[in-house]
Design a protein around this nucleic acid. Structure first.
Lengths: 113, 113
DNA sequence: TGGATACATCGACGCTTGTCAATATAGAGA
DNA sequence: TCTCTATATTGACAAGCGTCGATGTATCCA
């Protein structure tokens, strides 16, 4: 049941019974999941990580998604703010890369439910 | 549909390049993730699976969530329709149970991105 | 210097979502 | 039967989200 008083920073809120996810962690995990819970953003993650260099600029992404450039930029921003992508500006272009274990961390917190 | 040349049932749509998630699968996976991407529903999954019998009725859930009964019923319905919970009516009560590997299936599709 | 290109931001629009109060349904017990 | 209890459904509302067109910003090149 994990009554651990010594556990890592994970999930220990005042009134939360043992083994049940704390309010704050539920909130945080939900927000991470919301970042992925969109077809366009799933395709973005898939396309970028399938790229040869592991990176892609906006102009590579707008066409396979069938969305306008502002919309793609908007989705990329959400993924960056969720800690799933990095953005690197080189010249006129902005290159986006998938942060290796970011998805795995989210997935593990879900599995631990 | 199923234009599959030879690959497993996974992800092969007409115009979709190899290794990139198909439109339909992105749509489906996003919908599954939306079902989990809510603090109240994460807590529901956590609380129910932490129960002794592995099951809980609505009256057990409304108080630890701090939400009204109709709202809890609403969230439970979403989880049932997403294939994450089962509902069994016994007498006046409705008992909800977590479907064992439902979360794992979702998680694996995410990891395969 | 000026124009062209790649990207970000803004404002607006419809659609979805989370929540509640009120009401409906259905089973248990008198 | 009638009443009480547990749950589901409905209707309404505010807030959030996805999308677009228009505009702003920054970099490159002639």
């Amino acid at each position: 049941m994990m009554l651990t008083k010594n556990s890592p920073a994970a999930a220990c809120a005042p009134g939360t019974p043992a083994g049940i996810i704390a309010d704050a962690e539920a909130q945080a995990l939900a927000q991470s999941l919301k970042a992925i819970a969109d077809p366009a953003r799933l395709k973005l993650l898939s396309i970028i990580s399938a790229q040869d260099r592991g990176e892609a600029c906006v102009c590579d992404l707008t066409e396979p998604l069938g969305l306008g450039q502002p919309t793609v930029s908007h989705h990329l921003k959400i993924l960056v703010e969720a800690g799933l992508l990095t953005r690197e500006k080189r010249g006129t272009w902005a290159y986006y890369t998938v942060i290796p274990d970011a998805l795995r961390v989210i997935v593990e917190r879900v599995t631990a439910l």
